[in-house]
């Protein structure tokens, strides 16, 4: 009887801990935190880690995916970001964090197809075990984390301030953040919010 009581007590404690985790804001990196490197499979079949990059000043890590309309709306802008900033030492590192069982469009094979079709100039990695995005605290796609060379988090949030219309953008958040880093300043804003598809 005591045992049963103990077990049920423990499960109540565990359950309430779990649910309280769910209710509080998601854990993840804050500005200034140092990110842990990862090794994820690229669409070309090779494993990619941040330490593999040579002569970089930082990384534009973008959690994105195939299926999400917001990710699609930003696809061209992500390509442009890489084209503009990779030569300056800030390559885009795209990561699909979604479980393809939730949406078949986000499978590794579909990632390969999309990367080929749009000629992605950047690595498009698959967070197959879904262990990387929770460490970052990514919650939606697209969700950007700008990292400095030593992997400290400099900016978290949206690419710019208009998801619907690229021509109506007033604030290019990621570009401004890189400009600030180049000047040795802190990005401002360092965190922005955006609508996106929940990572599943």
């Amino acid at each position: 009887m005591k045992k049963i009581f103990l077990i049920s007590f423990c499960s109540v404690v565990v359950l309430s801990t779990l649910s309280s985790f769910k209710l509080t804001s998601p854990a993840g990196y804050k500005i200034g935190d140092k990110a842990e490197d990862f090794a994820l499979k690229n669409v070309d079949g090779k494993m990619v880690s941040l330490k593999d990059y040579r002569n970089v000043k930082g990384y534009i890590v973008v959690f994105t995916c195939n299926h999400c309309p917001f990710a699609k709306a930003y696809e061209e802008r992500i390509i442009e970001l890489h084209k503009k900033y990779a030569p300056l030492g800030y390559p885009v590192v795209a990561i699909n964090p979604n479980n393809p069982q939730m949406n078949p469009e986000d499978s590794y094979e579909m990632m390969q197809a999309r990367a080929k079709e749009k000629a992605y100039p950047f690595a498009y990695l698959f967070d197959e075990k879904q262990q990387v995005y929770p460490k970052f605290g990514a919650t939606r796609t697209p969700h950007v984390f700008l990292l400095t060379k030593d992997l400290s988090i400099a900016y978290i949030g949206a690419i710019d301030d208009n998801s619907q219309d690229p021509s109506a953008v007033k604030n290019k958040y990621v570009e401004n953040a890189i400009t600030a880093l180049e000047k040795g300043e802190q990005p401002n804003p360092a965190v922005t919010k955006a609508i996106g598809c929940s990572i599943k």
Partner: peptide, 14 residues
């Protein structure tokens, strides 16, 4: 969205 999301709730990330 960065402008209006906090007006719905400060905890909402989007």
């Amino acid at each position: 969205a960065n402008n209006w999301i906090p007006h719905v709730d400060s905890q909402w990330d989007g």
